[in-house]
């Protein structure tokens, strides 16, 4: 390659560097789980260190649900004490830190997925079920999970991770219960995943 064309190529590279960010990237493998866990641990520590709060996810979703309930049926909110505490009167259920964590989680997940070439319309499933079956079970599992998360006052992030790191007894009991529930049922739903 002559010097001239090499320079040209360089210029072209620079010219299209912005476009390169948005181009479809080759899919990269996931990081080592211990490394990913350590990064997550540092983020969790920073959350506690700076704000005093840990991480959360289901609380954010909860407040989105309550927000829409409040739009559709505000008088219903006023009759249910549990909902009232979040959206009664002038309270805006979305004005809470955990909602902003959830927004950040979406952006962070997307950014990492994009930079590592993992943003694509796919369905993760076992080899022996169809996409539709998987979607159905994902919805059912999500509903069970959402219900359980509110009963336990937190999900894997808000209870297990956050409460676990600050050594709450309830959070550790919860964490072992989640694994217990999963292992107890795993054999019976093996067709979904294997």
């Amino acid at each position: 390659m002559s010097t001239l064309t090499r320079t040209q190529a360089k210029v072209e590279n620079r010219k299209f560097s912005l476009a390169a960010v948005f181009a479809r990237r080759a899919e990269k493998p996931y990081v080592n789980p211990y490394f990913g866990g350590a990064i997550l641990g540092v983020i969790l520590f920073l959350a506690f260190f700076l704000t005093g709060n840990g991480l959360g996810a289901s609380g954010g979703l909860n407040r989105i649900v309550v927000y829409f309930e409040d739009l559709v049926a505000p008088e219903h909110i006023d009759r249910v004490p549990y909902l009232l505490s979040m959206a009664g009167g002038e309270k805006n259920p979305l004005d809470n830190w955990v909602v902003f964590i959830a927004i950040g989680t979406l952006i962070g997940g997307f950014t990492s997925g994009w930079l590592n070439g993992r943003v694509k319309f796919t369905t993760g499933k076992g080899p022996n079920i169809s996409n539709r079956q998987r979607w159905f079970w994902a919805f059912v599992g999500g509903a069970i999970m959402g219900y359980g998360a509110r009963l336990a006052r937190g999900c894997t992030s808000g209870q297990a991770l956050s409460g676990g790191a600050v050594l709450s007894v309830g959070s550790w009991a919860f964490m072992f219960a989640v694994f217990g529930g999963g292992y107890a049922l795993a054999y019976f739903v093996r067709k979904l995943w294997n």
Binding site: L55, A57, S58, L61, T105, G124, W137, A138, F139, V140, G141, G142, A143, I144, M145, G146, Y147, G148, A149, R150, L151, A152, R153, C155, T156, S157, Q159, G170, S171, A173, F174, M175, F176, A177, V178, F179, G180, G181, G182, Y183, A184, L185, A186, V189, L192, W193
Partner: peptide, 20 residues
């Protein structure tokens, strides 16, 4: 917490995720 955790474990293996 324990009952909610067991329910979540069931939701996890059926649905494949947790909320986060």
């Amino acid at each position: 917490g324990i009952v909610g955790g067991l329910i979540m474990g069931v939701g996890f293996i059926i649905g494949g995720f947790c909320p986060g």
